[in-house]
Design a protein around this nucleic acid. Structure first.
Lengths: 235, 235
DNA sequence: TATAATTTGTCCGTATGTATA
DNA sequence: TTATACATACGGACAAATTAT
């Protein structure tokens, strides 16, 4: 994006990661950021708003914009659904593709994905590990009419990154339902756990900016490893 | 709040609940809302932004602001941490107070709550049921220096509502960590489940607008009943 | 298929209010 | 009390995506 406030948001986020601001534990004032980036106050405020929504900072009226020092290590920030690679660094995440095939949506799947029955859909089962530890078994479905091409090579990496960067499609929003369940034999074996143990489950529908569903997925998480983080503001 | 954009947000949210807009499945255009509420475009856009963050609508450039028709029945919207009563309607939620006492924060609790060791803290254990079904066992700690008075009467209802409406304190933001765990004997008995079964756990720290922690709580949810909802937009 | 109209998105500037230091 | 710093609100101009013509 060459949108100013997003660029500025990224810039400041990078500064935070690199420990600038660590002395004061807060950002420069809006006035200072206006000078620094040579933009209007509104644009700075939109950038700060983005940082706030991502959970990186928290503005306090009359006082300043403070760093929200919450350890995100080994946690999935529910505001960032860019997949695992974003949160853990690409090199720590390994992916084993257990299944990759093209199927036709049956009635039930078609309803969930808001498409016609019979629509061609990629089905993918993956086991993803972080630093060698099994982390999540993912069952995902991609509408081929929206994501026309996937390969085992792509599926081994970050599918979302491929969609954004190669296909140049804009992901718009995601519905996520989080529950706990009981591991079945297959998932337990994949995760190195025992059937009957708990699992942390995330069921997701991802929409393009135009409002159509391109991905439906069920993520069975290793409950010993997974933490979801929700850093929210009072609305 | 008599802040314009929040009032307008509430008004529109009410309209949505009451099924106005159900024919078109979208809101009136910004232009129409400007006329209707007699405010500036910015103010309307801030109201829509709020509705978007709450997961009620989704704006699509060039097309309109569409209703996000996700069933929130029996689900906890992670954007609304007003406690249970908000999501389920006051009359369906019943509360059993298992413990209510004033203690002093030990070192560990003091660190989590960012207060001095020895700070007086209310400790409360509650079982909350929805429509008669055990829903969650809550263990919560309230800093008495910030919440100077609590009673068993108050604790039987919505504590957050009391803080907002009676104490007139503004809740600023909340950190929430969601995990899955294994039920111990006590929690299982309370929830009408069996020890060893899964639980869906939410560990929370709530801050006032000034940035201080007033509440730390651990919620052990009935995994058969609880769904967390996260309706997010791509940031 | 191409153009125009509609509708939301970005960006600028200014003024005033409110909470904190 | 005063100054600082974020919050609310108004106004205008142009861009970008979608929809209608």
């Amino acid at each position: 994006m060459d949108v100013k406030y997003k660029v500025i948001c990224e810039e400041i986020a990078k500064n935070i990661r690199e420990g600038l601001y660590q002395d004061t534990k807060k950002l420069p004032t809006e006035e200072e950021l206006i000078e620094q980036f040579e933009v209007s106050r509104n644009t700075i405020r939109k950038a700060i708003d983005l940082l706030t929504r991502k959970g990186l900072v928290i503005p306090i009226q009359g006082s300043g914009v403070f760093l929200r020092s919450v350890s995100m290590d080994g946690a999935i920030n529910l505001e960032d659904f860019h997949g695992l690679t974003q949160g853990f660094g690409e090199n720590h995440v390994t992916t084993k593709v257990n299944s990759f095939k093209l199927i036709e949506a049956d009635e039930k799947l078609a309803q969930v994905m808001q498409c016609e029955k019979g629509t061609p859909v990629y089905f993918i089962e993956r086991l993803r590990s972080v630093a060698g530890v099994p982390y999540v078994v993912e069952y995902s479905y991609y509408n081929r009419e929206l994501i026309p091409y996937l390969s085992e090579e792509i599926v081994k990496g970050s599918i979302y990154q491929y969609i954004r960067e190669e296909l140049k499609k804009s992901i718009g929003f995601v519905d996520r339902v989080i529950t706990a369940g009981i591991l079945n034999e297959h998932d337990a074996r994949e995760l190195g756990l025992t059937p009957g143990e708990p699992s942390l489950i995330s069921t997701n529908r991802a929409f393009l900016k135009s409002g159509v569903i391109f991905d439906y997925s069920i993520d069975i998480h290793n409950y010993k490893e997974t933490k979801f983080l929700k850093l929210s503001n009072y609305l």
